[in-house]
Structures are given as structure tokens and as C-alpha cells.
Design a protein around this nucleic acid. Structure first.
Lengths: 334, 334
DNA sequence: AGCAGCGCTGAGAGCGCTCTCACCTCACCC
DNA sequence: GGGTGAGGTGAGAGCGCTCTCAGCGCTGCT
């Protein structure tokens, strides 16, 4: 298939030096005499030599690349139009600075799950980052036990000792719901996220807590963070309690769906029903009306998980958890 | 860092066989006696053995994984809320069936570009897929010359011999613009995509062709496929020709931005201005009004580039180009 | 009885690289 | 003039695996 590629041996021969010296030049060692260095460089250029990474990592025990595992189908990953890209961008920034290759792996199916596991344990990557973990996915824990450095985005459900980085879900949610209470709303419902994800669970917990504090009854529907599910959940809520005057929606995408249902049902936002989302994705600004929502520092999450992993790789001790702040952004929908 | 992992040697010793036999069992050879096979399996399980892929691919010259390179910043990649995920899903399906690992690489910066090049040439992957190529990016051609099997999504600009898969951009565009002409629109503008991408160029060409055929003047603004650019381009068009009664927008995301500008300018859609998009992303259905657009078989693109690459890897001869059909989807915006 | 042939296993080479260690050359100094 | 050490280079081991090839014990045929 692929043309045979030149080896270091050939480069060395052409430059009239030993393999060891050629290797030194390729790897930027300074202890090589200038003329020899030049000769090797020329040989490399002429042959179009590129080191075989498999051979290199076999001896160095490093792969100089790290995996970002998104345990989702590609659909979910990308339908959320700013969360993943933001995280990825943050991760990229940090890894690029450390000259590590970022490898993205989407594991939706069980087969892909297994393959990713083997891939990571087999030493193709030096460490693994997880984003958006579903349920008590055993993979992070499993990899950690196998000796692979791991950092998660989002507190893992279940009892896990995997270090993670999360945002202040509870704080953000409570700020949002209190905002509705303070505005005089009396029947505040919520569209919760999937209850097998920690973001789904925490945002519902925050909502319930404020409701209890202000002696209001909880009105709950559950979605899965997609637009369609937001639409359906909103219909459900209107059926359950036609009198509701506010909704806290656990993601902006679901809020977008909810807005559509409200429009179809003839409710004006925010006059009849106030709506608050979560995430502050780009779309939030383009909703009609623009969405009041909870902003999370998405890129910072990416940068932070990458930084923690790099520290781990460097042999440092790292915090078991890092919590980043959230912030309520008030626009027109509430 | 990582705990020392067991080697095949240790598995063999524990099972009381040679390394060769252990290897045979691990790789599923049938020519091993059942009791020995069992013993090896047990040893593998007990030690938690996972083959070192670097060592394996060093000798087999295969990596059993293929790269999908997205030469974009993560932002652009994901803001398009259905194109990339669709392609990725299609690719995943095919590769999973072939038991190959998919490695996604986002190369936005020049540094990442170089790293990706080395990564691919260094044999970390058996082949490379490209999606959404910018300008005359030399990377595909370069990799091909280096002996790496390559297939592109989208006809590469410039003179390239890299095999590709594309949709019928011209046909789709012409259908869309003719639809506007047939509806009696007399001042049809366009918001074109970036002119360093073939999708941007072709869709503008198609528009111009129909305009010329129907003796209408072209009214052109150029965006970069993002929502913001669509918004800005629409403002530009309204300033250039306040009388325009239709717009063909080269992507749904830009169309979403354009709709907002039109609403702000007080134009009713489709009464005052008809709008047609391109892509048929999910959002199109959620626009207000729902967007008439050109659907392209996104997942099929992914499946097709993957299939072509796998055929290439298998040593087959493949077509230099495969063109997939597009289809006009009429909703309410035009 | 002898030998071909089959089913199975083990020895060993070698994939392309890095890295240790020994060595070789020169100043430079006492 | 000999010793010392710095600066540079090469030989060779070995990373963990696959795969060829030889060899083992049998069966079954001549």
C-alpha cells in the first residue's frame, strides 16, 4: 500500500554518520557538531524522512498524544452547538503548547467503547480526558486502575476516585431560579436534563432546593438535552399545569425547543411565561426573544482538564476536584 | 507514570507456553489446541494483558486506525450544527464495521497542521480522510505523495489528483434559484460562502448561472458560513438593493442570521423576501419561518469517503470522484 | 518398516527507534 | 610530557510484538 518510508539507518548512511548521531539531530540534541548536524538535516530533507512513531514510542514508552473521549453519539456531541467545541478548543490550546497531539474519540456504541478502552490501555496515548460522562460509566475508573492518567469533565456519578473538573452547577442553577422567584413568578416549572448525567442531576437538585426554600411546588419534566426533547417536555408541562408562569430549562438547546412550543401554544415570553436556560451557547443570543441563561466558562473547562492531565503526566499531585464559577446572564426571556 | 503493563512474554510464561503461541491465541489463530488456548486466555485475563499497539504496528506496518482531518478551528467545525456530526457518523459506521479506530484531528493552526502531517506520515494511521478543505490546502496532495492513502470530502481546489466525494453542488443550487425564479421573484440576491472553499465557489457559480439564464442581475454578498456573517451580509444586501425580493443563502446557518436581519429590518419572510438555504441542518426546521433549503445526504458523504478509503487500503482501484445527489426541500420561507 | 504429510509448538530474527556507555580526540594545565 | 576533562561520536542492547521456519509427534499410506 503505502510506499516504503526511509528509516533513520538510511538517513545516517547518506549523511555518513551513525544512527545514534542521526537520532540526536532529529531530536534536537545540541551536542552535535554544526557541519554534521547540517549533513544530517540535508539527508533528512532529501529523503523526506519522518520518524516512525511506533518505533519511537516503543522505546520511549510515550506516545506524545492524548485522547479526549466523548462518550456520546456524534449526533449529541455536535447538536450542542457550543459546549463541545468550546471544551475542545480549550483542550487544544493547552496541548498545543505542550506539543501533544489531540486525538478525539467518539464512543457511542458498546463496540466503540471497548475499542477505545484497548486503544488507551495499549499505550497509544499518554493520558485520557473525558467529557460529558453518562451515568456511572466505568471506563474512567477502569482506565485509571490500568495505570492510564485520567481527568474528567464533570463529577463522575458513583463512587469514583477519578480527578475531575466541573462548573458550579448548583450555584448557577440557584441563581437562575432565584432570579425567577425575585421577579415574582409563582409557578416555576423545570425541564430537567437526563438523570444519568451529573449535569442533569445537579441542575434538578438546585431547582428543587430553591423551590423548597421559597415554599413553591416543584413542576418537573425531563428531557435529554436535545431540542426535540425540550419541545416535548414543554408540551408536557403545559398539560400538567396550564397556569405555570416560568420555566427553568437545564440547557439552552432544550430551551430553544421549549420556546417554540410556547409560541405555538400562544404564550408570550416573557410576559406569560419567563424562560431561563443553561449553557449560554451562541444560539441563546439568537433566540426569539434572546435567552436569559446561565453561562459556564466552557473553554476554561477544556483548558483546565488539559492542564490537570499534563500536571499528572509530569508526575505532580493534583486536586481531586476543581470547580469553576458560573454566572447568570440576563437577556429578554426572563 | 503509568503502571508497568504485562507483556506477552509474561502471559506466555504464566500459561506455560512460548511467546509465539500466546501471540497466536491473542490474535485469534485457530491452529492452537483448545486446552492451551484456554490456559493462555486465563493468563491474559488474570494479568489484564492488553497488547502494546506500538510494538504490534512496528512489525505489522499497520495501525488499524484511520484519521479524519478537519482543517478548521473547532469553532467552525461545530457551529455548523449538523454537517460535521453527520459526516462523522457516516464515517464511524463504516469504520466500526471494518474494526478500525477513528481518530479525529482538528487542524486549525499552522502548528497543528504540521503535527498532523507528521502524525499521518509517521504511520500512526493507515489512511486519512479530509473534510471541508480550505483553499488549495496542500496537505492531502502532500500526504498522498508520501504514500498515505487519502480520500477527500469535497473537490479539492487547484490541480490535485486526490480522490474525492462531493455532492451535486451546482445541481442543488440551480434547483434552489430556479425555484425562486419560478415563484416570480425578480430581484434575487445571494449570500455566498467563503471563496476559498469549493462549496462556496460552486454555490456562487450555480447562482450566477441561473441568474444569467433568466436575464437577471447578480446581487452578491460573501459570508464565511457562520451565522454572524449571514447577518452582516444580509445587512449589506439590503443596503445595496433595498428592493430585493429573494435571497439564496449558501448555508442554513448563514440563512438563520439573515432571517434575523430581515426581521429587524421589518421585512416579512416569505411575503417581502423569500429565503432559501443550503444544507438542511436540523435548525432549518426550527427557523421562523421554517427554512426552504437544499438537502445534501450528509451521512452518506461520510459513509462514502470511508468506503472509498477502505477500498484503497484493500488495494482496490477507486474512482477519482464520486458525486452524490442533492434535493430541494420546500418549507415556508420560499 | 519406512516415509510423506498433517497439526501443532517453539526458537529466533527483526520491525525502527532511543539511550547508555565506552571511546576517541583535543585543548589545557601542572 | 603526561594527565584531565570536556566535547563529540559510534556500537549495541533492547523496547514488545509478529511471523517464518524448523521440528516435534502422530497417523496413514505404500
Amino acid at each position: 500500500m503505502a510506499a516504503r518510508r526511509p528509516t533513520l539507518e538510511e538517513v545516517a548512511r547518506r549523511a555518513g554518520v551513525s544512527r545514534a548521531t542521526a537520532s540526536r539531530v532529529v531530536n534536537g540534541s545540541t551536542t552535535v557538531a554544526a557541519p554534521i548536524r547540517e549533513a544530517v538535516r540535508r539527508a533528512v530533507a532529501e529523503l523526506g524522512y519522518v520518524p516512525n512513531l511506533a518505533a519511537r514510542s516503543l522505546v520511549t514508552q510515550r506516545a506524545d498524544s492524548i485522547a479526549l473521549i466523548l462518550p456520546e453519539t456524534a449526533n449529541r456531541v455536535f447538536s450542542d452547538d457550543q459546549f463541545f467545541p468550546g471544551v475542545i478548543r480549550g483542550v487544544s490550546q493547552r496541548l498545543e503548547a505542550a506539543d501533544k497531539q489531540l486525538v478525539l474519540m467518539l464512543v457511542g456504541s458498546p463496540a466503540a467503547h471497548d475499542r477505545a478502552e484497548r486503544y488507551a490501555i495499549a499505550g497509544h496515548v499518554d493520558g485520557v480526558l473525558f467529557a460529558s460522562i453518562h451515568g456511572a460509566d466505568p471506563l474512567p475508573e477502569l482506565l485509571m486502575r490500568a495505570g492510564v492518567p485520567v481527568v474528567c469533565n464533570g463529577r463522575p456519578l458513583g463512587s469514583s476516585r477519578v480527578p475531575y473538573v466541573d462548573v458550579d452547577q448548583l450555584g448557577g442553577t440557584e441563581a437562575a431560579v432565584r432570579h425567577l422567584v425575585a421577579a415574582g413568578r409563582r409557578r416555576i416549572a423545570t425541564i430537567a436534563g437526563p438523570q444519568d448525567m451529573v449535569a442533569g442531576v445537579d441542575r434538578l437538585t438546585g431547582y428543587r432546593r430553591v423551590m423548597a426554600d421559597s415554599d413553591q411546588r416543584s413542576i418537573v419534566a425531563v428531557g435529554d438535552f436535545t431540542r426535540e426533547s425540550g419541545e416535548a417536555a414543554m408540551r408536557q408541562l403545559l398539560a400538567d399545569d396550564p397556569q405555570l408562569d416560568a420555566v427553568f430549562v437545564a440547557s439552552d438547546l432544550m430551551a430553544h425547543g421549549a420556546l417554540r412550543t410556547l409560541r405555538e401554544a400562544g404564550r408570550r415570553v416573557p410576559d406569560d411565561v419567563a424562560v431561563v436556560g443553561f449553557d449560554d451557547i451562541q444560539l441563546a443570543r439568537y433566540c426569539d426573544p434572546p435567552l436569559t441563561t446561565v453561562r459556564q466558562p466552557i473553554e476554561e473547562i477544556g483548558r483546565t482538564i488539559a492542564r490537570q492531565l499534563l500536571r499528572l503526566l509530569a508526575g505532580e499531585q493534583i486536586e481531586p476536584a476543581v470547580i469553576l464559577p458560573t454566572e447568570l446572564v440576563v437577556r429578554e426571556s426572563a
